[in-house]
Design a binder for these strands. Structure first.
Lengths: 219, 219
DNA sequence: AGCTCAATTTAGAGTAATCTAAAAAATATT
DNA sequence: AATATTTTTTAGATTACTCTAAATTGAGCT
């Protein structure tokens, strides 16, 4: 019936990586995502294929079946709802909740998630600005572009980040660049790949690498 | 560093069973508590002993060291805080929260538990009436006696149950005997071991077995 | 088409937790 | 005290997940 934590994590990784054309994901991509060996991935892909949660052919990569997609999306829903709870109810900061939510998402109880969703007021986005799938797996998309694509003079609001890594989120927090902050781009140098912007009066410099991972809703 | 779920569950079982004189618990008692084989218990006792979380001698049973006691008490604290959250915040019923809390108690984050405790207003008792240890492992005892010990005419309030089993809690819910209800004993027949009482106008009959597991604060 | 190299799979092995069956130790009974 | 019974441990195996190293397959290049 229930899946193991490992199985669930593989499904989530495949969902995350299957933005590509036909949704097919390579063995190595999964190994990199989960920081495990390619051999382990191959073993697990066989198992998930037997359970009909993915379609898999040797040497050809894997993609989620409808069942697999449903389960993976539910995990994302759980993860993001828990993140909202941790930030909104418990007052934790957005850079410390990811790892805890990574554990909480595996708790087994549909009813628990329904009640939590209700308690939180059916939020549509998590603290990183990512959409929360509803119980049917549908979610709202939001118009957002990477900070790196803004031209000098453009303004907007920080609505999310792409990276989940704690170190990255911590870095942003230290710079004062948190969710909801209004920003205005001063310079965006395509050449040396740096960007300067104004946040609450201060001026801030970011590398192109960092700027590409910060999502903005333009105003 | 961190312990596995299995290791944590063994420590909790040993704490639960070590009400006895010197706090020593037998292999078979643990096996029964965790519904596992005695052989598995022996294996695990060796491992926990190596980690200095219990003292253990072959054929002589086990008892918690200070470290083991601290960890086990923290687990109880986490379990009971989560139960309060599930009932108080999410509106779940006391008969459905135990199993979910059984999973939630393993989530690793001291800060999370501190925040949760704060969010809930530092509750002293869980929905079953059991005391919640504080961060230092200390907890308040409450004067409570089993319903089975009340004499006819005595009155009181339901403040807890001894059994954790879902089926038992469900049974009580159906009879309308939930936490906080005022009761008055009408008859308590030592001979055939049954008891009748008044709850909100209704009259209710309980077996001695059930009555022994319902805790009352007399008024 | 044949070769090269990267990606992937297979082979073989290790760890954690569990089981059943058999052996050993402790406890109870006569 | 000797024997019978119960409890506990050991032995040997199984499942899930993981690893490294070696073999295989596929894809790109000439």
């Amino acid at each position: 019936m229930g899946l193991s934590y490992a199985e669930e994590n593989y499904l989530k990784a495949i969902l995350k990586l299957s933005g590509s054309p036909d949704g097919t994901v390579s063995t190595n991509a999964i190994a990199a995502q989960l920081d495990t060996s390619a051999a382990s991935v191959t073993d697990m892909l066989k198992k998930l294929s037997d359970k009909e949660l993915i379609t898999y052919q040797r040497y050809k990569g894997a993609s989620l079946t409808d069942d697999g997609q449903r389960i993976a999306t539910t995990l994302v829903r759980k993860h993001r709802l828990w993140e909202v709870f941790l930030v909104q109810s418990l007052g934790m900061t957005w850079d410390e909740v990811h790892e805890i939510a990574e554990e909480l998402e595996h708790i087994q109880s549909d009813r628990l998630i329904d009640r939590l969703d209700h308690f939180l007021g059916h939020p549509k986005f998590d603290p990183h600005g990512d959409p929360i799938p509803n119980a049917q797996g549908k979610y709202t998309l939001r118009a957002q572009i990477p900070l790196s694509e803004l031209k000098p003079g453009q303004e907007g609001i920080v609505i999310g980040v792409r990276e989940d890594e704690t170190s990255f989120l911590k870095h942003l927090n230290e710079k004062g660049l948190t969710l909801g902050k209004s920003i205005k781009v001063i310079t965006n140098d395509d050449y040396d790949n740096t960007l300067s912007l104004q946040v609450e009066g201060h001026e801030l410099n970011l590398s192109g690498k960092v700027a590409r991972n910060i999502m903005i809703k333009t105003t």
